[in-house]
Design a protein around this nucleic acid. Structure first.
Length: 381
RNA sequence: GCACAGUCUUACACAAAG
C-alpha cells in the first residue's frame, strides 16, 4: 500500500493527475482505505497541474471520505498558492487550518515566510517569524536560510552575515544551502573572491561544496566577465568527480556567448553534444538569445525548430527572445505573429511580450500601433 | 510508537543609464 502511495506521489510530482487517479482506483480496488498520505499526494498532483481549485475541493471532501487533512495536506496547498501569487488566499487557508484545530508547524511557517520575502515584504516576514516564535514553534535551518536569502535580496549582506553568526551561536549548524545562499549573495555584488573564500570556510566546517556551490561561483565569474576562470573551475570540478548539470551548462554558455568568441562557443557546444548532453529549454534559450543579438534571426528560427524536434518545449522566454530579435531587425510584424501564436500555447498576456512589441513599434515610429497595443494590454489587465 | 506526503540555495528574455 505504501508503494502505491509512493507511486501516486510520483505521478503527482510530474503533475499527471490522470495517472494519480488510476493509482487511486487500484488502491480502492485492492480494498485499501486511502489515507491522509494518499490524498495529500493527490492534492499535490492537482496543485502542480494548475488545478488548485480542485485541490481545495478535495480538501473539503477529505473529512467525509473519513480522512482528516493534516498540516502536510494544508501546507501542500498553501505553498502552491504562495508560489502562484495567491498569498492572500494562502493566508486565508492558513487561518482556516488553525480554526479546524490543525496546529501549524515549522514547515508551513517557512513556506509563508519565504513567500513574504519573495514579495519583498520583509517586515511582514519578520513579524510572521516573531508570531511563529511566540507560538512556540522552533525555527530550523530552513527558516534561517529563507531569512538570510531575504536579507540579501534587500541588499543587506552585513545583516545576513550577522544572522549567520547568530545562528551558529544558537547552536544551529549552517548547512550547504546557507553557505550557498551567502556565496550567491557575495557573487551578486561582485565579490566572487569572497565567495570563493566562503567555500573554503564551508569546507573547513565539514561541508563539501556541491554542484550548486560551484555553479554559483562559475556564474559569479561569468557575470563579472571572467569566463575563462569559470571554464577552468568547471574542468577542475569534473576532474574531482563532480557532475556538471544543466545550470552549469547555461552559466557557461551564457558566459561564452557574452565574450562573443563564437569559435570557442561553438567548440563548447559541440563538446557537450559529443558528450551526449541533452540541452534543456534554458540552454537553448541562451544560444537563441546570442543568435538574435547577432542578427541571425533565420538561424534562430531553425534553432527553435530543432529544439521542438528534440522534444524540448519552448518557454515564454523562447518566444520573447525571438520576438525581440525580429524587432531588432525591424520585423515587428513577424514579432507580432509570434506574440499572437503565444496565446495558443498557454503564454497569454505575457508582459515582456507586450514590452518587446511596444518597443518595436516605437522604434519604427508607429506610435499609433503602439498605443492600440498598449490600450489592449491595459484592457486585458 | 511506525513512514509512503509538504517548506529553503544556483542558469535564460524586454526599457533607461553606462
Amino acid at each position: 500500500f505504501k508503494d502505491l502511495n509512493m507511486l501516486l506521489n510520483s505521478f503527482g510530482c510530474i503533475s499527471r493527475v490522470d495517472l494519480c487517479f488510476a493509482v487511486l482506483g487500484d488502491i480502492l480496488k485492492m480494498g485499501y482505505p486511502p489515507n491522509c498520505v494518499t490524498y495529500t499526494s493527490l492534492v499535490k498532483g492537482l496543485c502542480l497541474a494548475a488545478k488548485v481549485e480542485k485541490a481545495l475541493e478535495l480538501l473539503t471532501k477529505m473529512d467525509r471520505l473519513g480522512c482528516k487533512p493534516n498540516v502536510v495536506t494544508y501546507t501542500t496547498i498553501i505553498d502552491n498558492l504562495c508560489k502562484n501569487g495567491r498569498r492572500d488566499k494562502a493566508i486565508e487557508l492558513f487561518v482556516d487550518m488553525k480554526c479546524k484545530g490543525v496546529s501549524p508547524d515549522v514547515v508551513v511557517c517557512n513556506s509563508l515566510i519565504d513567500s513574504l520575502c519573495r514579495g519583498n515584504e520583509w517586515h511582514n516576514a519578520v513579524s510572521f517569524f516573531q508570531e511563529m516564535l511566540d507560538a512556540g514553534i522552533h525555527p530550523d535551518v530552513v527558516t534561517f536560510n529563507i531569512l538570510i536569502h531575504g536579507l540579501f535580496k534587500e541588499g543587506k549582506i552585513q545583516e545576513a552575515n550577522r544572522l549567520l553568526e547568530l545562528i551558529i551561536q544558537l547552536g544551529i549548524k549552517p548547512n550547504s544551502f546557507i553557505y550557498n545562499t551567502l556565496m550567491d549573495a557575495l557573487c551578486t555584488v561582485g565579490r566572487v573572491d569572497d565567495a570563493r573564500q566562503m567555500l573554503v570556510l564551508m569546507e573547513t566546517n565539514g561541508h563539501v561544496g556541491d554542484i550548486v556551490s560551484y555553479n554559483i561561483l562559475m556564474n559569479g565569474y561569468c557575470k563579472s566577465g571572467d569566463t575563462d576562470e569559470a571554464m577552468r573551475l568547471c574542468r577542475h570540478i569534473i576532474h574531482n568527480g563532480i557532475q556538471p548539470d544543466s545550470y552549469t551548462y547555461s552559466t557557461l554558455l551564457y558566459g561564452l556567448c557574452h565574450t562573443r568568441d563564437w569559435q570557442q562557443t561553438r567548440g563548447f557546444v559541440s563538446e557537450l553534444l559529443g558528450m551526449g548532453i541533452n540541452f534543456n529549454v534554458v540552454n537553448y534559450n541562451i544560444l537563441l538569445h546570442a543568435l538574435c543579438k547577432e542578427g541571425k534571426s533565420q538561424e534562430a528560427i531553425r534553432l527553435v525548430e530543432l529544439m521542438i524536434k528534440r522534444g524540448v518545449k519552448p518557454s515564454c522566454f523562447t518566444y520573447t527572445t525571438l520576438m525581440d530579435g525580429f524587432c531588432a531587425e525591424g520585423q515587428v510584424n513577424d514579432a507580432k505573429k509570434i506574440f499572437v501564436s503565444m496565446e495558443t500555447k498557454g503564454f497569454e498576456g505575457n508582459v515582456v511580450g507586450y514590452n518587446v512589441l511596444l518597443n518595436g513599434f516605437c522604434k519604427k515610429r508607429k506610435i499609433d500601433e503602439a498605443m492600440i497595443l498598449y490600450r489592449h494590454m491595459i484592457h486585458k489587465g
